[in-house]
């Protein structure tokens, strides 16, 4: 059981971590909006200049926040195969100019990087608290909080199930494998229903009537 991976750097200490969560959320979303919707504003006449300026700014924030750069780069790089595929297809059909290829590659990379900076400096619960203060519906917040809480338990369960499958059915392929897979999902589903019932009963005893706050 080693499940702190989701927002594992959110509890570091740094000038960025110390900001209020409203400030971090607002700046992350406005930076993303600038990158995705308003990039020409940064260009000053050269398409590459804008994207490089944005990257430089991101790197400064990353260094100040003391999050390991290898983590940020390797996680952001997961999106590169998608954008690389699009760039390659357009390279062969001759639709993109050089600038456009570079911008396409870096745009998705930098937007993942920006989101990673947000979730690595702000704990998920703090993000939820802020969103509910900004008027996100209670039901959505409550569901999100439950989801985050039980994700780890489900993860343990699926790991145990996968191990059981490897022991018993590792050589099974094709149609049989699909059947095994759907039985696993079925078991997981039944357990989720049962757990939801128990959780509800336990919470009802403590006064829960549909609202966490």
């Amino acid at each position: 059981m080693n499940h702190a991976f989701i927002d594992r750097y959110a509890r570091l200490k740094s000038p960025i971590h110390n900001l209020k969560s409203s400030q971090k959320l607002l700046s992350a979303f406005s930076m993303l909006a600038l990158l995705l919707l308003g990039l020409p504003l940064l260009n000053f006449g050269n398409a590459l200049f804008g994207i490089l300026l944005y990257g430089f700014w991101l790197l400064m924030i990353a260094i100040i926040s003391r999050i390991p750069l290898t983590f940020l780069f390797s996680r952001s790089a997961l999106v590169l195969p998608f954008s690389a595929l699009i760039v390659i297809v357009n390279f062969y059909s001759g639709n993109f100019e050089f600038d456009q290829m570079i911008v396409t590659l870096f745009k998705s990379f930098f937007s993942v990087f920006t989101l990673l900076l947000l979730t690595s400096t702000t704990a998920f619960n703090d993000i939820l608290k802020q969103l509910s203060q900004w008027g996100m519906p209670r039901l959505l917040i409550t569901i999100l909080a439950f989801m985050y809480r039980y994700f780890f338990l489900l993860l343990d369960e699926i790991e145990a199930l996968e191990r059981a499958v490897q022991m018993r059915h590792s050589s099974v392929t094709g149609w049989k494998r699909i059947k095994v897979y759907s039985n696993i999902i079925g078991v997981l589903l039944i357990h989720s229903f049962e757990r939801a019932e128990n959780v509800y009963q336990a919470m009802q005893m403590r006064g829960f009537s549909g609202d966490l706050s």
């Binding site: 569901i143 909080a145 509800y200």
Partner: peptide, 18 residues
């Protein structure tokens, strides 16, 4: 919605996520 469905929706969200 009934109150007992709220934890269920959360758990199913976790399930879909998984």
């Amino acid at each position: 919605i009934k109150p007992e469905q709220i934890p269920l929706m959360g758990l199913l969200a976790s399930f879909v996520f998984m």
